[in-house]
C-alpha cells in the first residue's frame, strides 16, 4: 500500500474545513498520547534502566558502574544459567505444543452443540481466571510428597506406584509443565473458539457436498481459517511463558538443586535475593534480542498477508 496514495486520501478527506482534529495525523498522534504517557513512564523507563543495569556491576542499593558485556560473559560459564536457559526453552516449547493441541481440541468441542453450553464454556475458563499464585499453591498441595491426592488416586484406584512429583529432577520439571498447561489451555481454547465462529458454515456445507471427510475439512478449511489467530495466540503465549515467574517460583523455587530453574527464577535468585541486580538483569534480558526478532518476523509476515 503506497504511502503516497494514503497521503492523497488523507488530504482529500480534509476538504475545505480545516479543523485540526479532523486531520488524520494530528488526531492520530493525539489519541496515542495517553498510551504513550503510561507506557513511557511505567514501562519504557524501567525497561531502559533494566538494560542499563545489565551492563553495570550494580547491586541492590548501589548503582555500580559500566562493565560492558561482562555480566553476559560471566553468565556464559554459569552451569545453573545454562541449565535455566535449557529449562526455559523446554518449558516453553513443550507446554506450547500441549496448550496448542489441547486448546484446539477444546475449541472444536466447545463449538459443538451440547447441553449447558454456556456453563461449560465458563467452567472450562476457570484455570485461567483463578489467581495463579493460589492455584499453584493448590497444585503444590496436590503434588505434595506426603499428602498428594494425585498419588493417592494413582495408588488406590489405579494401582500405580507413587511419584515424588516435585522431588526428582525429571518429574519436577514435568510438574511445572503440567500446571502451566492446565492453566494455559483455556485461553487458547477460547481464542480458537472465537476464530472457529468466524468460519462461515457454508464452507463446510460445500466441502461435505464434495464428499470431504471430517479430517479433510479440518485440514482444508478449519486450520487455514484459524491461521491468523493461531499465530497471534501462539506468539503471545510463547512470550508470556518465556517470562513466567509466579508459577515456577511458587511450585518449586528451582528445587531440587536448581534443576527446575528457569531464567526468571534464576534471575530472581541472583538479582533480588542475592542482590547482584546487574547480573540478574542480564539473565532476564538474555532472550530479549532473540524474541524480538521472532516476534517482528511473525508480525511482519502477518501484516503482509492482511
Amino acid at each position: 500500500m503506497g504511502a503516497a496514495v494514503r497521503g492523497l486520501e488523507a488530504r482529500g478527506l480534509m476538504g475545505p474545513r480545516v479543523r485540526i482534529l479532523d486531520r488524520e495525523a494530528p488526531l492520530g498522534y493525539l489519541l496515542l498520547v495517553p498510551l504513550l504517557l503510561l507506557l513511557g513512564l511505567f514501562l519504557a523507563y524501567p525497561f531502559l534502566f533494566g538494560i542499563w543495569l545489565s551492563v553495570t556491576n550494580a547491586q541492590i542499593g548501589d548503582n555500580g558502574h559500566f562493565v560492558g558485556a561482562a555480566n553476559y560473559q560471566y553468565e556464559r560459564s554459569d552451569t545453573v544459567f545454562i541449565q535455566s536457559f535449557a529449562n526455559t526453552i523446554t518449558y516453553t516449547a513443550v507446554t506450547t505444543v500441549f496448550k496448542l493441541g489441547l486448546g484446539l481440541l477444546m475449541a472444536l468441542l466447545l463449538n459443538q452443540v451440547f447441553p449447558a453450553q454456556r456453563f461449560v464454556r465458563a467452567a472450562l475458563l476457570l484455570p485461567w481466571i483463578i489467581p495463579s499464585v493460589l492455584s499453584t499453591l493448590a497444585w503444590r498441595w496436590m503434588f505434595d510428597p506426603t499428602f498428594s491426592v494425585v498419588n493417592w488416586v494413582a495408588l488406590h484406584y489405579l494401582h500405580l506406584p507413587s511419584v515424588n512429583w516435585l522431588g526428582t529432577t525429571s518429574t519436577a520439571l514435568v510438574s511445572l509443565m503440567i500446571v502451566n498447561t492446565w492453566r494455559g489451555i483455556p485461553f487458547y481454547g477460547i481464542s480458537f473458539l472465537a476464530g472457529l465462529q468466524t468460519i462461515p458454515t457454508e464452507l463446510y456445507e460445500a466441502a461435505r457436498v464434495d464428499g470431504a471427510t471430517r479430517f479433510q475439512q479440518f485440514r482444508q478449511i478449519t486450520l487455514p481459517m484459524l491461521r491468523p489467530i493461531l499465530v497471534v495466540v501462539l506468539l503471545l503465549s510463547t512470550i508470556l511463558t518465556f517470562g513466567d515467574f509466579t508459577l515456577p517460583y511458587v511450585l518449586t523455587n528451582c528445587a531440587p538443586y536448581n534443576s527446575t530453574c528457569v531464567l526468571s527464577t534464576w534471575a530472581f535468585q541472583i538479582g533480588v535475593n542475592g542482590g547482584y541486580i546487574g547480573i540478574g538483569a542480564a539473565i532476564s534480558l538474555v532472550l530479549f534480542p532473540l524474541l524480538s526478532i521472532i516476534v517482528a518476523g511473525v508480525l511482519i509476515g502477518l501484516r503482509s498477508r492482511d
Partner: peptide, 20 residues
C-alpha cells in the same frame, strides 16, 4: 527420608503432625 527434595519449611511440620 528420601522424600524431602522439594520440602519447604512447612513440609516437615505437616508430616510430623500427621504422624508420618
Amino acid at each position: 527420608s528420601q522424600n524431602t527434595l522439594s520440602w519447604l519449611d512447612p513440609d516437615n511440620n505437616q508430616a510430623y503432625h500427621s504422624g508420618l
